[in-house]
């Protein structure tokens, strides 16, 4: 086994650098140039980008109205696949679920998945979710509908600025979760005659509640 390793590495090392004129990039340009980066403009930009991806975005002014929005979306559903209480930004959420008699389960047939986020990216309308204790991957993957609860303060300008923040915190922090997923809209495919269809394997619908 180590033979192949040494064979490959030795063969590569025999060569001088193939592009000696190319050095490391000094100043990285971001993919998207954002004109304004005030919290309010990032919020609006995030909303409009996410909506382009077929997400349903609601901006709320209080925890209470965020909760109400949530219950309106789930309608008569009585089971949800949901991250643990300490991983959600709404403080009284679990109590409210209990009051309504909603059961939390990771059963595969559950139609609603509920998560928080680690970050939201304005430039591309994406949300970032890292795995961890009480932050199961299935909640944003198996159900037909994924609802993400986002705090306004979690919105970054773009993927680059979130990555920069990660570098600042250190690589150990970055690799602690076994999986970090950047989600941009509901699952989709256009494999059949280039016709866009939502909900191939992941959720068919994505609801983002921001407060």
């Amino acid at each position: 086994m180590s033979n192949s390793r040494d064979f490959i590495l030795n063969k590569l090392k025999k060569n001088p650098a193939p592009f000696p004129e190319q050095s490391k990039v000094e100043n990285y340009l971001p993919m998207v140039k954002l004109e304004k980066k005030t919290p309010e403009s990032l919020l609006q930009h995030f909303k409009s980008e996410a909506e382009k991806l077929s997400a349903q975005v609601t901006i709320c002014n209080s925890e209470k109205s965020a909760e109400e929005t949530f219950f309106k979306i789930i309608g008569n559903e009585i089971q949800i696949n949901c991250w643990s209480a300490e991983n959600l930004p709404l403080k009284n959420f679990y109590q409210a679920l209990k009051d309504k008699g909603i059961e939390i389960t990771e059963n595969e047939s559950v139609r609603i998945g509920v998560t928080g986020v680690n970050a939201a990216l304005a430039a591309t309308g994406s949300i970032v979710l890292a795995s961890g204790k009480g932050r199961q991957r299935t909640a944003s993957l198996l159900p037909e509908v994924h609802i993400a609860l986002i705090k306004k303060g979690q919105i970054f300008a773009d993927f680059e600025s979130w990555i920069k923040e990660c570098c600042k915190k250190g690589l150990e922090d970055f690799t602690n979760p076994s999986n970090t997923i950047v989600i941009s809209g509901p699952s989709r495919t256009a494999d059949i005659s280039m016709e866009l269809v939502l909900g191939m394997h992941g959720p068919k619908g994505q609801y983002l509640i921001i407060y």
Partner: peptide, 10 residues
């Protein structure tokens, strides 16, 4: 602008 699932596996 982004793949729907940009997946980082650690």
């Amino acid at each position: 602008s982004m793949a729907v699932y940009t997946n980082i596996i650690n």
